[in-house]
Design a protein around this nucleic acid. Structure first.
Ligand code: FES
Ligand code: FES
Lengths: 151, 151
DNA sequence: CCTTCCCGTAACTTTTCTTGTTGCGTATTT
DNA sequence: AAATACGCAACAAGAAAAGTTACGGGAAGG
């Protein structure tokens, strides 16, 4: 089963946008993600609708952050992407007649619900600023000093 | 992204096998799961290799439980199915050069690892016998008395 | 024996979902 | 007016899972 990498990709993009400061076009971003501008617009649409980024049309247009990274959590982005299913495993039938299957579904659903709650709670506690700081740390450790934040 | 329902299906089958006691052919099981005998064999192969079920060839052959439900946990079956990925979300690139992406991956991996550990721990605590008991409870609540276990 | 039943496995087809692509409309800047 | 970008719809391509077909054993029964 294949992974949905949209969350990972959007986080990546947003942090780059913050660090670069400038306007990013869908094409630039697509180049960064090795994908297509239309795919970028499609994915970013959710973030725009939720007010995390703004898009501007026309010459000189592109994407900009609408809020500081400090105010955006991983959970926010997850939600903005439409709350996609977190799990790769699930029931064969959501409303089975078979009572055995119902018992199986109930047990799995319980466990999955609990794990999802924990995961999303954690997502809610991590801001993109946290990730940006971790990037700075890695950047420093890699030899050269960070671009910004050299407080 | 589509769900992998193999775990759910296998649990379903195993409990039915226990409750019915008789040998079940791949064709019977396939009928139960609305699928194909070859798919059943394919999926059950893992369980057989791990010693949870036995298969017998030839006339009168089929599948039988190799161990009592009490000794099989959800985690056992999950593992027997090859430890499939639990999550539908994941990184775009496992070994990215970009340090931002590395930071993103690290954060996500941490959270996912934790959630997976919790989920699998829970899977490890639930036996198929627990599910069978829940089935009995539901069966009782549905009107008629349970087939067995009316202790 | 030899027929029937049943699993084991490989190869192939179908289905389904995601992603990628093209095309055109519209807004904005120069 | 020309150039640049997003918005969106429609379609194509790709990949992964499931389903199917086919054939090769092995075991039981007559
Ligand atoms: S499938 Fe027939 S009862 Fe569970
Ligand atoms: S994509 Fe993150 S550095 Fe180029």
């Amino acid at each position: 089963m294949r992974n949905d990498s949209r969350l990972s990709r959007m986080l990546h993009v947003l942090i780059h946008m913050d660090r670069q400061g400038e306007r990013a076009t869908s094409e630039t971003i697509a180049g960064m993600l090795n994908t297509n501008p239309v795919v970028v617009r499609r994915t970013m649409a959710g973030l725009r609708d939720q007010g995390y980024v703004r898009s501007e049309k026309g010459h000189g247009g592109g994407w900009t952050l609408a809020r500081p990274l400090e105010e955006i959590t991983l959970l926010d982005i997850h939600r903005a992407l439409g709350n996609p299913s977190v799990f790769a495993i699930g029931p064969a039938d959501d409303q089975p007649d078979c009572l055995v299957e119902q018992a199986v579904n109930a047990a799995l659903a319980d466990a999955l619900r609990e794990a999802e709650a924990m995961l999303l709670a954690r997502f809610g506690q991590v801001t993109l600023a946290d990730l940006a700081r971790d990037f700075d740390r890695r950047f420093g450790a890699s030899g050269r000093p960070p671009l910004q934040d050299e407080g």
